[in-house]
């Protein structure tokens, strides 16, 4: 009898843990309490893949939310000196890559070097994908696969995860995923992640 109860308790606890895990990945627009206010200033924004969506995240963070983040769409490792939070805006854009005079491979190398610098200095990483289906595809997926596993949290605007690509990657890497309905809502998530000054 006791054995049976233990078995049931184990099954329930496993189910509960799995449920919490799923919730951590799937809760719409909900920031896990453990992450709220846990990212420190100063923050720095760059793109991964030269998407101009980085410019939207910049004005969202700085003009609307007054977070005062540094910004360079093609930041180099030295650009993030002193930063405590790195925001990577994910998405490959041929037009953006062309404007920066970079190939996708060169930009991936740039992003790898920025991530390495962040990891060396304990800078925590927020990855954001705001471009919807237009910023999904083979090239974008390459930068997403590079950045998601090294992130502390991933924020995706509806549409970008229609195929569950982010869900799968985040589950495999154990990275919390926050899905939101709009770019403005992604801004609210960003604000709630940042520690109050």
């Amino acid at each position: 009898m006791v054995r049976k109860h233990r078995f049931v308790a184990r099954v329930l606890s496993v189910a509960l843990m799995a449920g919490i895990g799923v919730l951590q990945v799937c809760a719409q627009g909900t920031v896990p309490p453990s992450l709220q206010g846990s990212f420190l200033q100063p923050g720095y924004i760059t793109s991964a893949g030269q998407t101009s969506d980085a410019a939207i995240v910049k004005v969202l963070a700085n003009t609307r939310l007054k977070l005062g983040f540094g910004y360079d769409i093609a930041a180099k490792p030295q650009s993030i000196a002193g930063a405590k939070t790195l925001v990577l805006v994910l998405g490959a854009s041929n037009k953006g890559l062309g404007a920066a005079g970079l190939s996708l491979e060169q930009d991936i190398e740039r992003v790898k070097s920025v991530i390495a610098e962040a990891q060396k200095n304990g800078v925590r990483i927020i990855s954001m994908h705001t471009g919807g289906t237009a910023r999904r595809g083979e090239a974008s997926n390459q930068v997403i696969e590079l950045c998601v596993p090294v992130s502390d949290v991933v924020v995706v605007v509806e549409g970008g995860n229609n195929d569950g690509f982010f869900t799968d990657l985040c589950e495999k890497a154990g990275v919390p995923l926050v899905e939101v309905a709009s770019i403005s809502a992604a801004g609210n998530v960003l604000k709630s992640l940042m520690a109050q000054q």
């Binding site: 998407t51 101009s52 969506d53 410019a55 939207i56 854009s93 037009k95 953006g96 062309g98 404007a99 705001t130 471009g131 919807g132 237009a134 910023r135 605007v157 549409g159 709009s182 770019i183």
Partner: peptide, 9 residues
């Protein structure tokens, strides 16, 4: 509607 941006060059 969430727009995305593209660079002109």
């Amino acid at each position: 509607v969430s727009f995305h941006l593209e660079d002109s060059r």
